[in-house]
């Protein structure tokens, strides 16, 4: 007796980045040279996946202004431009993806990560960790409150800078829909210069990663909002029993 799992629209490998993208130098030794082996008809292994509706999400897990601040008599807030990042997770048919785990991590306002491998000059912020997570609601909506991360330099070419970005991970409903991406900010002049952004051939693919300023959801005297919608692979309706 086997459960029924959905099939998904094929991933468009010409739209998604290639593995070998020599302008992004690290990809040179980390990209497979053999062709991927295509599983023509996905088995339950590929079509199933974990559901995180039971994961205990803490009250500040999606609030980076609060979830790392130093305890004290007068606790402080992180330095930087206060923002709300929000949007929906939907599939390629526009259907909301509820109960899915959205995780994010980022540098602080100075462009420094709270990570032992990050040795950039910009200081750590004692009140900022840089990690968040939440579960989408019934409409596929998610929200994070944070500060806008700073751009930072990294060794690729000489004088290469990452545009301001937030790393975003979406898990579920299937391992077929697994996706990790980076969210960029509308209007950032560093976006077109970045070798990691340029792993995408189609400018429209880059557009899918650029959050839009959302004045309607911004709050006067408090924060600016950015809207970032995430599209995962479409679940196909099955019309016939197998």
């Amino acid at each position: 007796m086997s459960k029924s799992y959905p099939y998904f629209l094929a991933r468009d490998r010409a739209w998604q980045p290639a593995q070998y993208t020599p302008r992004y130098k690290t990809s040179i030794t980390r990209s497979p040279k053999q062709a991927l082996v295509s599983i023509q008809r996905a088995t339950p292994s590929e079509r199933s996946g974990p559901v995180f509706s039971g994961l205990e999400i803490g009250p500040h897990d999606n609030d980076l202004l609060m979830n790392f601040r130093t305890d004290g008599v007068r606790p402080s807030l992180p330095i930087g431009e206060r923002i709300v990042m929000h949007g929906r997770v939907i599939d390629q048919f526009g259907k909301p993806v509820p109960n899915t785990l959205v995780e994010m991590w980022q540098a602080n306002a100075g462009g420094r990560y709270r990570h032992k491998k990050d040795g950039y000059l910009a200081p750590l912020d004692p009140n900022f960790g840089g990690v968040g997570r939440c579960i989408t609601d019934t409409e596929g909506r998610y929200t994070f409150r944070t500060v806008r991360p700073g751009p930072y330099p990294w060794p690729n070419d000489i004088n290469t800078w990452r545009p301001a970005h937030i790393h975003v991970s979406v898990m579920g409903p299937s391992i077929s829909t697994r996706l990790i991406t980076q969210m960029y900010f509308e209007g950032d002049p560093l976006i077109p210069l970045c070798p990691i952004v340029q792993v995408l051939k189609d400018p429209d693919a880059v557009e899918t990663m650029i959050a839009r300023l959302d004045m309607a959801r911004s709050k006067s005297m408090d924060y600016l909002a950015y809207r970032f919608d995430i599209v995962v692979r479409g679940a196909l309706q099955t019309y016939f029993e197998e």
Binding site: L9, R11, D12, W15, Q16, P17, Y24, I90, D91, Q92, F93, G94, E103, M104, W105, A107, Y113, R114, H115, K117, D118, G129, G130, V131, H167, S169, L179, I180, T181, Q182, I196, V197, V199, L200, D204, A205, V206, T208, M209, I230, V231, V232, R233, G234
Partner: peptide
């Protein structure tokens, strides 16, 4: 994706060297 109204999947990017902070 095309004129049938099917949307493009959001593009993927590397998880990067600091993935541990998040995951």
């Amino acid at each position: 994706q095309d004129d049938t109204g099917v949307l493009r999947e959001t593009a993927s990017q590397t998880a990067g060297p600091y993935v541990h902070i998040g995951l």
